[in-house]
Design a binder for these strands. Structure first.
Length: 570
RNA sequence: UGGGGCGUCGCCAAGCGGUAAGGCACGGGACUUUGAAUCCCGCAUUCGAAGGUUCGAAUCCUUCCGCCCCAGCCA
C-alpha cells in the first residue's frame, strides 16, 4: 500500500496532517513504547459508507506509514441494534478497500468478561455504584448544561451492596431498566459526560456473538477505553463529537487498575459530502422504507453501493488522501470524489462504444450486406490493453444527441449537410432525414467517403466532430441505468422544516432499456468498469445475464459541450 | 447565560514569527479520430473582526464576532 520504505529518493514529503504530526513526534519521543497501533472500530449496525472510508484510510494508513499495526474491532456492545449481516459486510468492505488486519479481528464482546471484571474492581474501589433510579429520574438528576446535577440517593450505597447488586444484575435477577452501574465522578462537572456516566445497563437481549450469556452490556465509553487498552492501542482516533468524552476516556484508563497500555484519544472531523446523507440512521431508513434497492444500491454512499456503481477502491483511497485530516468541520464537494473516480478509471477502464438513445443512420452509398471490421484501441492510456475489432455496416445507430436538424452555434456533430467522423471508421455526410408522422427525425440518411477509413493515414481530411456508433446488425441490446445524485440539496437533512427524504432527487435513476452496445460488451465481466466513449464510465451489474446485459453508469465524462450549450441557453 | 472545539480563495487544505503550498471547482488557450484525456496560463496584497507586541504577525497577546458538539440505560 505504501512505498514509504524506499530509502532511495526521498520524495518532497507531503505535509503531514496534525494526527500524523502527533504520531511522528510521539515516535520520536519514544512515547507509547515507541509503537504505533491503531484500530478501526465500527459498530456492526449498518453498512460502511464513504465517511468510514476516511477513518479506515486514516487508521490503517497511519499504522502502515509508521511501521505499526491496525486492528479491526467490531464495537458490538448494543445487542439490540447489531447483526452478523453487518459484520460480514464490514469485513468485506474493509478488505475490498485494500486493507489487511491479518488475524487482529477483535470484538468488544470478546472482552465482556474482562470488562465486567474491571467494573467489579471499580466498585470495590468505591468508584462505581449501582443506581436504581429510573431512566427518567436519572435524566432529571443530571441537571442541565448550565445547572449542576444532583447526587442520586443510591450514590452512597455500601460497596458490598453494590457488589452484590451488580452480581445479581449479571445473574438476570432484574428486568431491563431497573438498575444501572454508574461511575462515581462528579455530578457538578461542567462536562455532562463526567456526571456519573452509565457504565452498564441491563438488556435481556440476544447478542449476535455471545448469545444469551449476558443480560448486562457495557456502554460505549467504558467498553471502548478498556478495549483500546487491552489491545495495546497507542492512538485511538475518533471523530470530533467524542472530544467531550476524552476526560472520561482518560478517567477510565487511569482508574481501572492494571490495564495494559496507555492509549491516547485524538479527534478529527468526520467527512461530509455535498448532496449526500452520511448518517447510518438515515441510510437505514432509505433501505427499510425501500426508497433504494438496498445497502448496495449504486446511488448509496455506502462502500458496497459505490463498488456496485463501479467506483474503484483506489479512487476512494485517493479521494481520502486528498480531502486531508483536520479538525475543521468540512463539507467536501462531491465533484472531488467524482474527479478521483474519473482519474483512476481513465487509466484503467477499457473503452467501448455504446449508444444510449439510438438514432438510425443509413449510409446510402455503402454496399448492402458488407461488413468491415474496424480496429479499435482498447485504452489509449495503456498500450498493453491492445485492440479489438468492431463491425461496420451500412446501417448503424448513433446517439440521438449527436444529431440536430437545426444545429445550435458551435455544434459540430451531425446535421444536414455536415460531415463528421465515425470513430475508427469513415467520414460521413448527412444528406437527408426521414421523419415519422409526428415530425420527429427517425432516420438519418448519409453518404460516406471510402478514402477516409480507419486510423492514421497521412494528409487525411479533418472534421470537427467524431461520433460513436454501433452496427445495427451486430449491436447487443442492453439495459443501462443512469445514476445521478440522490439528493437535490447540497446538505440534505439540515432543513428541519422537512424530512430529508423530501429532498431526494426523483431523477436519481433513469433506465434506458433499449441501449445498444458493441458486440464485445455482450460478455462484459460483472464488476468491470468500461468507458463508453464520449459518454462516461459504466460498470456491468450483477443483474446482468448473457441475454440481458445491465450496466450502471459510474460517472459521466466531463462534458464541455454541455457547458457551452447551457451558457447558450442561459 | 456551563463546558468542549473550530474560523486561511466558491469547496477542501498547507502554513508552527521572516513576508500566503497544493488539490477540486471556475475562466482562458494549445492539442485532439472520445467536445474525453493531456498540456500551458489565470484564480487570496491577505488569513472571522478590531486593537496590541515586534524591524517583521495567518502565526504571539487582548477583546469581540460567527459556526459546530454535549443534558441516551446509542455509538
Amino acid at each position: 500500500m505504501s512505498d514509504a520504505s524506499t530509502n532511495t529518493s526521498p520524495a518532497p514529503a507531503a505535509p503531514l496532517d496534525f494526527i500524523r504530526q502527533i504520531v511522528s513526534e510521539d515516535l520520536k519521543a519514544g512515547r507509547h513504547g515507541a509503537r504505533v497501533h491503531t484500530r478501526f472500530p465500527p459498530e456492526p449496525n449498518g453498512y460502511l459508507h464513504i465517511g468510514h472510508a476516511k477513518s479506515i484510510c486514516l487508521n490503517f494508513g497511519v499504522a502502515a506509514e509508521f511501521g505499526g499495526l491496525c486492528n479491526l474491532r467490531l464495537d458490538d456492545t448494543n445487542p439490540t441494534k447489531e447483526d452478523v449481516e453487518y459484520v460480514d459486510s464490514i469485513r468485506t468492505d474493509v478488505r475490498w478497500l485494500g486493507f489487511d488486519w491479518s488475524t487482529r479481528e477483535f470484538y468488544a464482546s470478546d472482552y465482556f468478561e474482562r470488562i465486567y471484571a474491571c467494573a467489579v474492581t471499580l466498585i470495590g474501589d468505591g468508584r462505581a455504584y449501582v443506581d436504581s433510579l429510573s431512566a427518567d429520574e436519572i435524566r432529571e438528576y443530571r441537571g442541565t448544561l448550565t445547572q449542576p446535577g444532583r447526587n442520586s440517593p443510591f450514590r452512597d450505597r455500601p460497596i458490598a451492596e453494590n457488589l452484590s447488586l451488580f452480581e445479581r444484575m449479571r445473574a438476570g435477577e432484574f428486568p431491563d431498566g431497573t438498575h444501572v452501574l454508574r461511575a462515581k465522578i462528579d455530578m457538578a462537572s461542567p462536562n455532562m459526560n463526567m456526571r456519573d456516566p452509565t457504565l452498564y445497563r441491563i438488556r435481556h437481549a440476544h447478542h449476535h456473538r455471545t448469545g444469551d450469556t449476558w443480560c448486562i452490556y457495557p456502554m460505549y465509553d467504558f467498553a471502548h477505553a478498556i478495549s483500546d487498552a487491552l489491545e495495546g492501542i497507542t492512538h485511538s482516533l475518533c471523530t470530533l463529537e467524542f472530544e467531550d468524552h476524552r476526560p472520561l476516556y482518560n478517567w477510565i484508563i487511569e482508574q481501572v487498575p492494571d490495564l495494559p497500555g496507555d492509549p491516547q484519544q485524538i479527534e478529527f472531523a468526520r467527512l461530509n459530502l455535498t448532496y449526500t446523507v452520511m448518517s447510518k440512521r438515515k441510510l437505514l431508513e432509505l433501505v427499510e422504507k425501500k426508497i433504494v434497492s438496498g445497502w448496495d444500491d449504486p446511488r448509496m454512499p455506502t462502500i458496497s453501493g459505490m463498488r456496485r456503481r463501479g467506483y474503484t477502491s483506489r479512487a476512494i483511497r485517493e479521494f481520502c488522501a486528498r480531502i486531508g485530516v483536520a479538525k475543521n468541520e468540512s463539507l467536501i464537494d462531491v465533484a472531488l470524489l467524482e474527479h478521483s473516480v474519473r482519474e483512476d478509471l481513465n487509466q484503467v477502464a477499457p473503452r467501448a462504444m455504446a449508444v444510449l438513445k439510438p438514432l438510425k443512420v443509413v449510409i446510402e452509398n455503402y454496399p448492402e450486406g458488407q461488413v468491415e471490421m474496424m480496429q479499435a484501441i482498447n485504452n489509449p492510456e495503456d498500450e498493453s490493453a491492445g485492440t479489438r475489432q468492431v463491425p461496420f455496416t451500412r446501417e448503424l445507430y448513433i446517439e440521438q444527441d449527436d444529431f440536430r436538424e437545426v444545429p445550435p452555434k458551435k455544434f459540430f456533430r451531425l446535421y444536414p449537410g455536415n460531415e463528421v467522423r465515425l470513430r475508427y471508421a469513415y467520414i460521413i455526410r448527412c444528406e437527408s432525414v426521414v421523419k415519422n408522422d409526428a415530425g420527429e427525425v427517425v432516420e438519418v440518411r448519409c453518404t460516406y467517403d471510402p478514402d477516409t477509413r480507419g486510423g492514421s493515414a497521412a494528409g487525411e481530411r479533418r472534421v470537427k466532430g467524431t461520433l460513436h456508433w454501433v452496427s445495427s446488425a451486430h449491436a447487443v441490446r442492453a439495459e443501462v441505468r443512469l445514476y445521478d445524485r440522490l439528493f437535490t440539496t447540497e446538505q440534505p437533512g439540515t432543513d428541519d422544516r422537512r424530512h430529508f427524504t423530501e429532498e431526494m432527487n426523483p431523477n436519481a435513476l433513469e433506465v434506458s432499456r433499449d441501449a445498444l452496445v458493441e458486440p464485445s460488451l455482450a460478455t462484459a465481466v460483472n464488476g468491470t468498469t468500461y468507458q463508453f466513449e464520449r459518454l462516461g464510465y459504466f460498470c456491468a451489474d450483477p443483474d446482468s445475464t448473457p441475454e440481458h446485459p445491465v450496466f450502471n453508469r459510474t460517472v459521466t465524462l466531463r462534458d464541455s459541450w454541455a457547458k457551452i450549450e447551457k451558457s447558450q441557453n442561459a
